[in-house]
Design a protein around this nucleic acid. Sequence first.
DNA 1: CTGAAAGCGCTTACAG
DNA 2: CTGAAAGCGCTTACAG
Lengths: 332, 332
Amino acid sequence: MKDVAARAGVGLKTVSRVVNGEPGVTAETEHRVREAITALGFRRNDSARVLRKGRTASIGLVLEDLADPFYAPLSRAVEEVARDHGALLLNGSSAEDPARERELVLALCARRVDGLVVVPAGGDHRYLEPETAAGLATVFVDRPGGLIAADAVLSDNFGGARDGVAHLVAHGHRRIGFLGDQPRIHTATERLRGYRAAMAAAGLPVDASWVSLGPTAPDRVRAETERMLTGPSPVTALFTGNNRVTATAVRVLARHPRPVALVGFDDLELADLLTPAVTVVAQDASRLGRTAAELLFRRLDGDAGPPRHEELPTRLIARGSGELPPADGTSG
Amino acid sequence: MKDVAARAGVGLKTVSRVVNGEPGVTAETEHRVREAITALGFRRNDSARVLRKGRTASIGLVLEDLADPFYAPLSRAVEEVARDHGALLLNGSSAEDPARERELVLALCARRVDGLVVVPAGGDHRYLEPETAAGLATVFVDRPGGLIAADAVLSDNFGGARDGVAHLVAHGHRRIGFLGDQPRIHTATERLRGYRAAMAAAGLPVDASWVSLGPTAPDRVRAETERMLTGPSPVTALFTGNNRVTATAVRVLARHPRPVALVGFDDLELADLLTPAVTVVAQDASRLGRTAAELLFRRLDGDAGPPRHEELPTRLIARGSGELPPADGTSG
DNA sequence: CTGAAAGCGCTTACAG
DNA sequence: CTGAAAGCGCTTACAG
């Protein structure tokens, strides 16, 4: 910038004015400055700008896995909102590891992002308090933050699972399995709660062997699915707790001799083309991301109200797999 | 940092040493400094650090759409490599718009990212020259940069498409349709070239009505697919140029009275569970991202060799749809 | 309409 | 082992 000023024969401040489109520069002066800028290949260094202005016009997004078909559209939605507000997006995957989440979040804070959208992996976010005190805005999405009063945008995990299981009950099932993610994940326990509520509402008992929470690695899900389909009290229907679990369960059911009904939480690409097509409780991942990012920017614009919790509805999409009648392996 | 130094009763430089883990500080002094840091809730401001050091320990990734199931794993792979090198990832979608690509890239440059991984939307990257001259490293991935000598990591689009089409020819097809993306996209024309090469190698003519390049919006793809399946010279097999096109084509074929063979470029989740299961030419999106990011960091570590072009192999996965025999609608 | 001075929060030599 | 001074590239008051 100094070089540009020298070449154009003007002061530093004048160059700054031109670069930032501020008023109060003669057309002729501006022309000289622009000429010098292109001749020298000058580009403003935003790091220096940030140092003075305080705001970085960037936000951070920390989620579980950028590659997951649920989180990818969520990211894109956050990016679009950021773009509308002239901000850039810094992105990171926690890989469901609380230590990695913390490390990432703090690295983003050190870069002085203006705000943060976080899908938490851990259950304790008190480490954010100094940052929040220093002016950082944070919105949790998909899952609430832990031990901290903060904004959160969630899906109706409880209601969605309850309705999905009730759908199976309405189609005559009494022995329904629940295959979910690890119990330390908020959405997993909420969906399990929905399952139990639907069973209780129908007056149905829940055998301990019908419920399985744990890592969503295909091996475990496959083993657990097979276990529920055999044994003394086999299930006639399955409720799967997220997209990864559903994909694996569908693979197992495709090779199973008896038809087994299935409702999955989260929609899957091509789910409508399978035989039977897969009935799902769909979340709107884009809308989750958009809502969270919009809330974040409202905070950055000065909204200092109490922490807000927004809950988005889910949608049951009946396609076939959830409407199969019970095929009772024990009695026929 | 000044406050920390004052509170600990030491100089600024000593605080800097502690924060950066540099040697040459008494255990007792270090303890005093650390105490002051936690008491004051101090976090180093990396913007200031960047201003002095020159390096930002961040890289930018610009691609078409963060939410696309092909680009999402590519992003994640770039992120992992960045993480291994202690760098953060700034991310943006160009939405296949050259102007938006340029805008994003320049915004990332203004933040002084150390390097850039770019899936180009535009065909002219001379705008990067001043940045490159100033030390920016750039690696293009999935598609080469335009009018600029730069590193590129690509899939073998030509060979993959050629083999996929040859596979259909080997199963008896003579009238094969090609449904691809817009012709200004490098991968679209490369794959079309592969299609033509396979047809030529088999001595088969290509009717103009069998080739369709254009936007991958479902409406257009649906219309074009239906057009190729009817009319005077209907195709008996389809080669689809990417994941989005394949998904739409599969939907059309599912409702079509006659079986039509299909090979798609790019793998799809659940493709193995469809009836018939979808034969694809799979790219390794993660490996593309990883290879590009690793090359970028080699450049940042000082590798100043001539621009490198790496080409990754594709893999034909036969699952059923590509092995269907011709069902000739005209002759029976 | 234009510019010289001070300062954002760090690090880099350099000196004790 | 420790610190005072200068400077990274901008912007913010302030003065002409």
